[in-house]
Amino acid sequence: MNKMVENFLRNRGFVLPKVRYLLRNQIYLALFGLVFSIILLPASWSIGFAVGAILGTFNFYFIAKLAQELIYMQRGALAPLLFSFYVRLFLTGLVLYVAIVFWGANVFALLIGLSIILVNVLIFGAALVGQKLKEA
C-alpha cells in the first residue's frame, strides 16, 4: 500500500522521500477521517469534514510540488509563490463559500477538516523527535 502510494507520488514529480512521506500521511489521514465521518457523523458534519479534508490535501499537494521547485530558483521565486498562494486562496474561498452557503456544511467540521494538515505536521515532528531520542 505504502509503496503504491509512494510510486504514484514519485511519478508525479515528488523526488524527496520526506516530502512523499508527509504527503502520503496527509492522504491517509484525510481518507481515514472521511470514512470515520461518513460512518459516524451526521450529513452536515460529513460534508464539512470532507470539504475541509479535500481542500487541505489539495493545498498541501500543490505547496509540496511548488516548494521543491522554488528552493532551487536563484531569482524570481517570490512571484510564483505569491501568485500560486493567491490563486489557491481564491479557489479555496470559492469552494468554502459554496460549501457553507449552498451545501450547508457544518463550520466546526470544516475547521477540523482543514486542521488535518496541522495534525499531520505534528505527527511528523513527533516522529522526528522520537527518532532523535532513539539515536541518542
Binding site: 516530502v19 487541505g56 493545498n59 505547496i63 489557491r88 482543514l114 494538515i117 496541522l118 505536521v121
Partner: peptide, 13 residues
C-alpha cells in the same frame, strides 16, 4: 525543502 514545506503549510493554514 521539507522544513520550508512545513512552514508554508502552517502559515497558509
Amino acid at each position: 525543502t521539507v522544513t520550508l514545506l512545513i512552514g508554508l503549510a502552517m502559515i497558509e493554514s
